[in-house]
Write a protein that binds this DNA or RNA. Sequence first.
DNA 1: CTGAAAGCGCTTACAG
DNA 2: CTGAAAGCGCTTACAG
Lengths: 340, 340
Amino acid sequence: MRTAKLTTDGTITLKHVAALAGVSPITVSRALNKPDTVSDKLREKIERAVEQLGYVQNHVAGALASAGSNVIPVIVPSLSNTVFVEVVAGIQEIAQKTGYQLMLGNTDYDLDQECALVSTFLGWSPPGLIIAGMRHLERTHTLLKRYGKPVVEVMEYGAHPIDMNVGLSHYQAGEAMAKHLIERGYKQIVFVGCQLTADYRAWQRYKGMDRVLAKAGLTRRPPVALEQTSHVQVGGPALIDVLATQPDVDAIFFANDDLAVGAILRAQRDGIPIPGRVAIAGFNGLGLAELVMPALTTIVSPRMEIGRIAAQQLFDRLAGRSPRRRRVDVSFELISRQST
Amino acid sequence: MRTAKLTTDGTITLKHVAALAGVSPITVSRALNKPDTVSDKLREKIERAVEQLGYVQNHVAGALASAGSNVIPVIVPSLSNTVFVEVVAGIQEIAQKTGYQLMLGNTDYDLDQECALVSTFLGWSPPGLIIAGMRHLERTHTLLKRYGKPVVEVMEYGAHPIDMNVGLSHYQAGEAMAKHLIERGYKQIVFVGCQLTADYRAWQRYKGMDRVLAKAGLTRRPPVALEQTSHVQVGGPALIDVLATQPDVDAIFFANDDLAVGAILRAQRDGIPIPGRVAIAGFNGLGLAELVMPALTTIVSPRMEIGRIAAQQLFDRLAGRSPRRRRVDVSFELISRQST
DNA sequence: CTGAAAGCGCTTACAG
DNA sequence: CTGAAAGCGCTTACAG
């Protein structure tokens, strides 16, 4: 028997509102969820009752009864990387506008963790889900496939999405930067990144670069894979280290702008001429890239836009509109500046 | 009648698992939620059944039945500001460890939006809630008070928290920086920030600074309040503008490091000597601050730590432990570098 | 250690 | 436009 408890904890429910307004709970539910289906007079009376009692709708009960909620899980590998935060911000922007809420999961680049998160999140019967990346455990894949509701995989653009996909080809981005560096006359090019095993998108950029170097018959160096988490502080020491251990290197393609900016600031401090001694390129297109000296050559990825499009695709589907394209390549732009 | 639907959409429920394992649904529920209370034999049988059917627990139903969930709403004013993201990351770190999920809300510095978010979030019967800031609408305040579960207000440290509070005094931070600048011999000091009406924590820093200037008998200038969103790109133009319109200014206290770093990079580009022509100070303690030239004097706020402590306090309370202190002043550290 | 009953607070068809 | 009944899928006491 819970009746006693109900009386005790004083939760205000639909029934209370209904009683005060002198209507049935059903009518209250309708007045709240589909205002048009209720006469003006009743609606006003109900709104007053809601106000007076300070009634807060119980979405848990609502979700159970209607087998659906308006909470969208978003799963990303990291929050310390601006890139994912910006994607989340883009999703947020659209979600909030459309009346959806976000549930945030962070995998820390761990696929088991990702699987656990997906499983938990699906238990909330979300109307859809957004997840970063296209590499998942078999089990994660199965869960999402069987789930049967809209899923958007974001960040990279790939061949076999679970459902929908918004991103860019990191492989092509790597190719583009390699071509740029070769055009500028650099011949001894090395890739420097952090945690390249986990951050396989950075790895894809390396592979793209490597392919172009191979085709051009240039020296192919193994990537410099740093252990630390990527951070602006890491770029400087990495630069010094590369110059010491591989003195013939004439260009460094950093996995992201944070590292590259760190390297440029360090070079400036130490009086290492960029690009005279070594050229430096980044990836992401942070605002900072054009402010440092020399300004940084980088590839701009439209992160907010990825978030916005992903959310839009999801909500289009939820609204019954089928999105124009199931897969969206947002592409990228190489911006050549003084650092190369 | 929903039975038909159940059969149709093929959702796998506790009942299905129970049937396959040859036990009652209650036992399955227990095996999943309180494994110790079930005999090993049954538990294994049940786990196999779960695996075989690919059963995903329905948390919505669970939350309704037990009147509680493990999803914690976190409400912040912005996601484009690193500061809040870091707090969220800190919360995440602890939450994930403890088996809680985060529900993310973004108010865009709008108190009405904040109120709407609180109301919606409370409808999910969360076990607690974390919210940035201590200034809310009356209605928001009432909702949270009446809610009766743990609430942590983060970012600033203040006098009358709704429940718990973790942060630092921005007023004191402003005072500290003003004292530092005065000690260094600067006399014409101005505060520059973005959207100071909405970002009232920045405003508090200004007020703290202003108080110290007043006490020292120095010129009190109105703060330069920029309209744009705060961003590293905004700092440079702001610097140029201040030097042009208030040429006697000898020190600028920027509302945050992004602006200050932007200013320093611009000064470098334009050959404006820092701190010779004008001293520059920031707030936050970003990694970047010590890399620019000259290195930036700033105040370090322990953002991740705020998130961690807030989450810890919340979970302590949820676990029945009363946290050591209801209010935590995480304080700050002024780091004096070459820019002042 | 295991199970039958009741209930969580809503919404969804179905009538009127 | 409004309402009575049934049910969403779980968990919480209470027995055994």
